[in-house]
Simulated scan of single mutants.
Amino acid sequence: MLQAVHHIAIICADYERSKAFYTEVLGLQIIREVYREERDSWKLDLALGDQYVIELFSFPDPLPRPSHPEACGLRHLAFAVNDIIAAVQTLHSRGVVTETIRIDPYTGKRFTFFTDPDGLPLELYEIQP
């Protein structure tokens, strides 16, 4: 039945700020960007490598949502990295604050959290030993 996760949809408060964060800070590539006049809404399709992963939306006056990692609902979005130290250093050089790197007690893998411009929890999870 299910084959894979197709995409993650994110509604942002400030479209230009979030567009810059996901493309310039995190390095996702733009597949397409459309303005939907009937909804007064931008839709930005983003890819990581050759995989379509995120739809970034703007809407007039979106409702706030609790976004702490332990809030009810979507917990966080995790990105796999080969070298967490290098990835964290890159984020820091781009003005992004990260939590202290922790070790998953079950897998032994290193990970850390940071947030997007709207406070959505994002994670870096190291896939290499």
Rank of each mutant, 00 (worst) to 15 (best):
V25W: 00
L28I: 08
C12T: 14
S93M: 09
G49S: 03
E38Y: 13
F113D: 00
D83L: 05
V81H: 12
L48R: 09
V53W: 03
M1L: 10
Y106N: 08
T90P: 01
P66D: 13
L28D: 09
R110Y: 13
V88Y: 10
A78R: 01
H92R: 09
I127E: 12
I11F: 03
N82V: 03
L44P: 03
S18V: 06
V97Q: 00
V25P: 00
L56I: 03
T23A: 07
V25S: 00
I85T: 15
A20F: 06
K109Q: 04
D45Y: 14
T112R: 03
H6S: 06
F79G: 04
Q3P: 06
D116S: 04
W42Q: 15
A86Q: 15
S93I: 07
I103D: 04
H6Y: 07
C72I: 15
F59I: 13
H7T: 05
Y15W: 13
T90E: 01
Q128K: 13
L28W: 05
G49R: 14
H68C: 07
P129A: 09
V5G: 04
H7P: 01
L46N: 13
L2N: 09
I101H: 06
L77R: 11
F21A: 06
K43C: 12
G119M: 00
L56C: 07
A71R: 03
P121F: 06
R39P: 02
T23S: 04
F113L: 02
E38P: 07
I8H: 08
Q128T: 15
R110M: 08
W42K: 14
Q128P: 02
I85E: 13
Q29V: 02
L77K: 11
D116G: 00
A86I: 11
R65Q: 01
E33W: 00
A78C: 08
D104T: 08
P64Q: 06
I103L: 12
F79C: 01
A78F: 14
D40G: 09
L63T: 15
I127D: 05
Y125I: 08
F113N: 03
S18A: 13
F21N: 05
V34F: 01
L120P: 01
F21G: 06
R17T: 09
E55D: 14
A78T: 05
P62M: 15
S93T: 10
A80Q: 11
D45N: 08
P105I: 04
P60G: 11
C12Q: 05
K19A: 02
T98N: 12
R110L: 11
G27T: 12
P62K: 11
V34D: 07
A4Q: 02
Q89P: 10
P105D: 14
E16P: 02
D61W: 14
L120D: 03
F111T: 07
Y125R: 04
F79L: 07
V34G: 01
